[in-house]
């Protein structure tokens, strides 16, 4: 049997908002450890991996590993009807008929909404996601997630919006990270310097650089990743010319959401 409860719908609402525009289906893996979610976009360019440890839930009972593919668009629609302070219950029975039940209960007026979701096939997930060695990454940038989102928005508004393939180049050089994009009639560069942690201890921008690195990514994807900002105050971007870049948001003490994307390759 699987039975989970969260007394505030916000966390799950935010998770769905952070993934549902880019990924149409996801694999949800429930085990004694917690919930592991994985999704790959249809063009196999981006992968998202989420971990919510059992401690993230107010009640967590899972006596048998259970893996289910779910349609994220349908789930996002259902969760938009949930209020932030609704109590969520997630249930699947032992003799489960390939469905999972999500219940939203309003603590104020006692109204209960029940959604049953059928399992669906997923795009080849779950996948084995190795922990890539730290030494393989040429640079790591940590910054406030709101700042990263703002940068993505600025670049998107300047970048040629008619072109789905607007490219952003992220370069790390000493104590600076530059975001560069080309618009119709010019270019735009946003420079972020490493900030002194004494000034704004809660909002540092930290840059760890082993060697200079300059990589190109699809801005459209990066923009979607930046929606992880509702889950964490900080984002860490790990850059390597040989490995997928990782955009990681730590979720309090209870997990993380990681987006993986390879840099563009010169042909």
């Amino acid at each position: 049997i699987l039975e989970l409860r969260l007394v505030q719908a916000t966390l799950f609402k935010n998770v769905l908002e952070a993934i549902s525009d880019l990924f149409s289906k996801a694999n949800f893996d429930f085990s004694g450890t917690g919930l592991e979610l994985q999704a790959m976009d249809t063009s196999h360019v981006a992968l998202v991996a989420l971990l919510l440890r059992a401690e993230a839930f107010n009640h967590y009972l899972c006596d048998r590993d259970l893996s289910m593919g779910l349609n994220l668009a349908d789930m996002a629609k259902a969760f938009r009807c949930a209020n932030n302070d609704d109590i969520i219950t997630i249930k699947a029975e032992e003799d489960w008929s390939d469905t999972v039940t999500f219940t939203f209960e309003s603590p104020e007026d006692g109204e209960i909404s029940i959604f049953d979701f059928d399992f669906v096939g997923t795009n080849g997930v779950p996948l084995e996601i190795p922990e890539f060695p730290e030494s393989e990454y040429q640079a790591k940038v940590r910054m406030p997630s709101a700042k990263f989102m703002r940068i993505c928005k600025k670049l998107s508004s300047f970048g040629d919006s008619g072109d789905r393939d607007t490219v952003v180049i992220i370069s790390v050089d000493k104590e600076c990270v530059n975001f560069f994009t080309r618009g119709k009639t010019g270019t735009s560069t946003i420079v972020c310097r490493q900030t002194q942690t004494v000034d704004k201890p809660k909002e540092p921008t930290l840059i760890e650089m082993k060697e200079q690195v300059s990589l190109a990514f699809d801005l459209r994807y990066m923009n979607s990743f930046s929606k992880g900002s509702t889950l964490s105050d900080q984002v860490t971007i790990s850059l390597s010319s040989n490995l997928p870049a990782v955009f990681e948001y730590k979720i309090a003490e209870t997990g993380y959401i990681r987006y993986y994307m390879l840099p563009r390759i010169e042909e």
Partner: peptide, 14 residues
Amino acid sequence: KSSQGRLESFFKPV
């Protein structure tokens, strides 16, 4: 000209 790299070679099915 550049193209977006694909992830299959880094992540294998479980």
